[in-house]
Design a protein around this nucleic acid. Structure first.
Lengths: 232, 232
DNA sequence: ACCTGAACACCGTTCAAGT
DNA sequence: ACCTGAACACCGTTCAAGT
């Protein structure tokens, strides 16, 4: 406090730049405007600084992306820490953890893509995996089966499915009707599925409930893994 | 042939540029040098032309990426067409199709990433999905369950898992030993798994056999889906 | 109709210079 | 020690000009 100069008390004495602050600003920017909007220049601007100043705190942009992933995985670890009340039910605990991770990722839509572009597995990520592996072991899984289970979960362990197309702006009923009509000749199966499933849908948002589909697939995997465990 | 000028018979009369040729060259370039090496300038160079000439045949780079995906999915459809000899066993047929798709994707390592960046589902992709949906239906799955099944397969339907880290250059035994040691204190579970699994490994390439892990997870899903069908 | 050179707006990053 | 302006090499893309 004694080191702080006060040239003008009206000017917000903006906190000094730091790796920490750079990363937090990067996450906020990506959350708000998308990962493509994150450039060294836009990030610097948000921090009230020139682009080149960032290089005093991070080596390069790759390192910023690394750090951003760690911020998100840190949030996941925080969310997971508060959980496991009941013990003994590995499946419920696993489900709870993974859905908590998913809830965090839904707040950072850019994270899955960036995670997949990383080549090294960071320390916070190791911590998260360690906890999942621990759950499998407590649940009576052999080391070998635990290993296969982790691979089988894949990115789903972190709460994201890699969907095949973007469902972010679902079609309206009339659009679907047109599409069903168009595809009926050449692609009868997909056309029929689209027609039937879109009629059944009671979700207002669109005809695919992402959360439902995620949990369906997760339970499929967990049930299957339990069966493999019992067969060993 | 009468339209062809022959200014010099020694000069290879390079085939005229076309959308087709641009896309094929783009796929080759990405296969050989990676997707990051694919720029309008390097692509043009490979075709013996200036970058700006490409714009006579494609609207922009996004459209090139779209077209590259279609080339790959076209290969998958070709590979799948030659298959289903036996009928009646939906699970074997599905397995066969998906593993054929995987074999194609392994020749185009850039494809998964590019596919996930596309927002629209292309016509060749629709054809492929239509065939999978048809298999589920023939296998006695309800439309609703078929829909969930397609979501549960996710990108695995096309033969790729989204792994959590890059396994392309596996560690040697001594590297693993060091890592196991380092993590033993803070991350006991992951350390123990790494130790045990790396000892069991009989694969020379590394301690994770990607093909095995892929088939393990695929069978887990297919078995689970069959169970859900029988329970309906 | 197709190809080209020059140019533009934008990247990440380097470097010498400021304080 | 930290920040900055100018510059560099590289993108995708536009446009007017060539043939």
């Amino acid at each position: 406090m004694s080191t702080a100069q006060q040239p003008d008390p009206k000017i917000e004495p903006r906190p000094p730049l730091s790796r920490e602050r750079v990363l937090r600003a990067a996450v906020e920017l990506a959350d708000e405007r998308g990962i493509d909007s994150l450039t060294m220049r836009t990030l610097a601007q948000r921090l009230g600084v020139e682009a080149m100043s960032l290089y005093n705190h991070v080596a390069n942009k790759e390192q910023i992306l690394d750090g951003m992933v760690d911020v998100v995985v840190g949030e996941i670890n925080d969310a997971v820490r508060g959980l496991d009340a009941q013990s003994g039910d590995w499946k419920a605990a696993m489900r709870q953890r993974i859905l908590a991770a998913r809830a965090v990722l839904l707040r950072h839509r850019w994270a899955p893509g960036v995670m997949q572009s990383r080549t090294e597995i960071s320390v916070p990520m190791q911590r998260y995996y360690d906890s999942l592996i621990g759950l499998f072991r407590e649940g009576g899984f052999s080391m070998d089966l635990t290993h296969h289970a982790m691979h089988a979960l894949g990115s789903r362990a972190l709460g994201f499915t890699q969907e095949l197309y973007d469902d972010s702006q679902p079609m309206g009923p009339e659009e679907i009707a047109v599409l069903v009509q168009q595809m009926a000749g050449e692609y009868p199966n997909i056309s029929a599925m689209l027609r039937e499933v879109s009629h059944d849908a009671d979700t207002a948002l669109g005809w695919c409930d992402d959360q439902f589909e995620f949990e369906f697939a997760l339970d499929l995997l967990l049930d299957g893994l339990e069966k493999r465990r019992d067969a060993e």
